[in-house]
């Protein structure tokens, strides 16, 4: 028995119009992400990865096609339905997007306050939740710190705690480690793996390098010019890339990781 789809793209299409010029960001994409998996989306920058992932929580709206989240079409929702489903979709960003004017505690508490009607937590329960989350990401004791006092890795940990606050079913990660050094990248990936294992949260992870995908993803979609040109297990894509985009990504990975070299 295969697991159920938690996110489905059905002929999703998104075009941006800037100054009269049309830029297709996502062009007729259809695929499923299954419940509980860690799914990677790789591709060069400008391939349309961010736009695609932002269709899932409706930060962008499709021009045509459907995006089903937990079986419900997110493209047809009004604000209150969107608010409800956004509780189930956490997101972390490349540049963290923490609220600089708020303490670590207040950052993590923010989604709980926004969703207070849906969650119905008392002040005490809310406080307990925040502290549990900070403990989970290894930042207990940092409640009163401000984001500017933290390292990049710590900031992303706060981002993760904040994204998990409302107990989402899905966690979206948009280049979550692209601004971090390799060691911190591994730490954060380890943490994401733990999120997936302990809470069974589906993770959809975007990256422009295959090395990040290799760390934790089971299946990967390779994107190029707004299209998914290849979709398979990480192992198959890595061993036997079929599309030009996948071949190029694997090739670059091998050069950078030591299998290849630019020396003559």
């Amino acid at each position: 028995m295969s697991k159920e789809a938690i996110v489905s793209f059905v002929n999703a299409k998104k075009t941006f119009k800037t100054k009269g010029k049309e830029q297709v960001a996502v062009r007729d994409v259809s695929f499923d992400v299954k419940e509980g998996e860690i799914f990677g989306i790789v591709g060069k920058s400008g391939a349309g990865k961010s736009t695609l992932i932002r269709l899932i929580n409706a930060l962008e709206k499709v021009d045509s096609g459907k995006v089903l989240v937990d079986g419900k079409d997110i493209t047809k929702m009004n604000y209150s339905q969107l608010k409800h489903i956004r509780k189930d979709i956490g997101i972390i960003f490349q540049h963290f997007n923490l609220f600089d004017s708020k303490t670590v505690f207040k950052n993590v508490e923010f989604p709980l306050k926004i969703q207070s009607k849906e969650l119905g937590l008392s002040d005490g329960e809310r406080q307990k939740t925040v502290l549990e989350l900070l403990d989970f990401v290894g930042l207990l004791g940092y409640e009163k710190h401000y984001p500017s006092e933290l390292s990049g890795g710590q900031k992303q940990r706060v981002g993760i705690a904040r994204a998990l606050a409302t107990s989402p079913k899905i966690l979206l990660a948009d280049e979550a480690t692209s601004a971090l050094d390799p060691e911190t990248t591994v730490e954060i990936m380890r943490l994401l793996k733990k999120v997936n294992k302990e809470f069974g949260i589906t993770i959809i992870l975007i990256t422009h390098t295959i090395s990040v995908v290799r760390l934790i993803c089971e299946r990967v979609a390779v994107m190029s010019e707004g299209e998914v040109v290849e979709l398979d297990t990480y192992k198959n894509v890595f061993k036997n890339p079929k599309s030009d985009a996948a071949k190029s990504l694997v090739n670059v990975f091998k050069i950078l990781e030591g299998d290849g070299s630019l020396h003559e």
Binding site: N57, L59, Y79, L82, K83, H84, R86, K87, I89, I91, F93, H95, N97, L98, F99, D100, F110, P111, I114, Q115, R162, T166
Partner: peptide
Amino acid sequence: VDYGVIEASYAMGAS
């Protein structure tokens, strides 16, 4: 104000 924090707020369900 960085548009990123506005998006983060929307993504959490804020109006």
